[in-house]
């Protein structure tokens, strides 16, 4: 299972980074979201994989997964959302200022291939 999980976290990160490197703001937002999923899963994995061992104390149970990474990830999820929201606001502001959704605010010359409706 460890190899499968490591592989899928790597795949999520790779997909996220590929989208981060695209030239349009919306792709960057999507990429960052994917990368946050990868990071959150990675942080959770720091507590090792465990099934049916939630860190909720109950009488008769002694076997719990490490709660510390979960506490970190919980706030990370919320802050990750804040970052996505901020990036969206930035993208909207940039589009208002430059009229473009290109990340550098400059339309490339060969963007004539834009799909016409």
């Amino acid at each position: 299972m460890e190899a499968v999980i490591a592989g899928v976290i790597g795949l999520l990160a790779a997909c996220g980074i590929y989208l981060l490197l695209r030239g349009r703001t919306f792709s960057v937002v999507l990429g960052l979201a994917l990368l946050s999923y990868a990071v959150n899963l990675f942080l959770l994995a720091m507590g090792r994989l465990a099934i049916h061992r939630p860190p909720i104390l109950a009488s008769g149970r002694t076997d719990y997964v490490d709660p510390v990474p979960q506490a970190l990830v919980l706030t990370a999820i919320v802050i990750g959302f804040a970052m996505t929201a901020f990036l969206i606001a930035l993208a909207l502001r940039a589009r208002r200022e430059t009229g473009s959704d290109q990340v550098d605010g400059v339309e490339m010359v060969d963007s004539v291939t834009r799909l016409e409706p």
Binding site: G10, A13, A14
Partner: peptide, 8 residues
């Protein structure tokens, strides 16, 4: 991605 996977 491979780096992240290896680290994990």
């Amino acid at each position: 991605g491979i780096g992240v996977a290896a680290l994990t």
